[in-house]
């Protein structure tokens, strides 16, 4: 069996997992919670793009922009309406995770109950493809990788070169110190959720374009994103990216080595292995100082 296609597909998956992992890591470090609610954000972006294209009849590029914008809007709204209340109450990590998981489940089943669990496609035409290192890739798959790379670069630019990004980083580094120095925590959190929502949307819209939308679209990406954080650690922002790539490769090489039915087992076993061998993440520094009780 050909080896290279699996590597290419693994990297493609890894990049998109890395985006979700970064969004999770950003929120984990800044707000101190594991935000499964990003699954709801993922669904919001995917369905917004679908509605813009399929129901409103907008051209695809416009629909994609609608999807990308829906991500941050949904993320910030979830923060403002739900999370902020619990965060201000000083809720425990367990409660926050339950709330976030509930938001995700509510989004899934809310969609299932209103638009049915049917699968819808954004584009019906057969898209042109190219051969690349013996791998057949269509234009959507190539665009997906490009969007992931652009989003990663954009996140780096935001964090390092904008004032809002610096504030987010300051809060991520030491929330109480940042607060003492006059950084508005609430504003920093809104930026965090907004940016996280945008990069999740950057993963969601291409995925929805490639394989259509249904209410269960978000489960795998979110859980893989969490797995990537565990494998990579979140001491530095490159760690989730490395974790995501490693996981994406493992996911596809598992198919190459065993069969497709074992790919999830391999991926999550990697997680368990990482937890047992190096609980601070393979690339070091999972010192979650702000971990809640």
């Amino acid at each position: 069996m050909q080896f290279v296609p699996y590597v290419v597909n693994g990297i493609a998956l890894g990049l998109s997992v890395a985006l979700i992992a970064l969004a999770l890591a950003l929120i984990w470090r800044t707000v101190g919670m594991i935000d499964f609610g990003l699954g709801a954000v993922y669904l919001a972006a995917a369905y917004a793009a679908y509605f813009a294209k399929g129901v409103l009849g907008l051209p695809y590029p416009a629909a994609a922009v609608v999807g990308l914008l829906a991500g941050p809007v949904a993320s910030v709204l979830i923060y403002l309406i739900i999370y902020r209340f619990f965060l201000q109450k000083g809720a425990s990590l367990f409660v926050l995770v339950l709330v976030a998981l509930s938001v995700f489940t509510a989004a899934q089943h809310g969609l299932g109950a209103t638009v049915t669990a049917q699968k819808f496609y954004l584009i019906d035409d057969i898209v042109p493809g190219f051969s690349f290192l013996g791998t057949r890739l269509n234009i959507v798959q190539i665009a997906k990788m490009l969007v992931s790379l652009i989003a990663l670069a954009g996140l780096a630019w935001f964090c390092l070169s904008t004032k809002a990004g610096q504030c987010v980083l300051a809060v991520a580094d030491n929330p109480s110190l940042a607060q003492a120095l006059g950084v508005d925590t609430n504003r920093a959190r809104m930026w965090t959720f907004g940016v996280a929502g945008l990069i999740v949307a950057a993963a969601a819209v291409p995925e929805a374009t490639e394989s259509g939308v249904d209410p269960y679209l978000a489960s795998n990406p979110i859980f893989l994103g969490l797995a990537a954080i565990i494998i990579g650690g979140l001491g530095r922002f490159r760690n989730p990216v490395l974790g995501g790539l490693l996981l994406g490769l493992a996911f596809h090489l598992a198919v190459w080595a065993f069969s497709s039915q074992w790919q999830e087992v391999v991926a999550y076993s990697l997680v368990l292995l990482a937890l047992i061998v190096r609980p601070q993440g393979l690339f070091g520094g999972m010192s979650v100082a702000r971990e809640r009780a």
Binding site: I82, L98, V99, L101, S102, V103, T105, A106, Q108, H109, G110, G112, A113, A117
Partner: peptide, 14 residues
Amino acid sequence: TAHLRQLFFVLTLI
């Protein structure tokens, strides 16, 4: 109904 039941669950939890 299955979806609505699940939805009801998690809203109760929140």
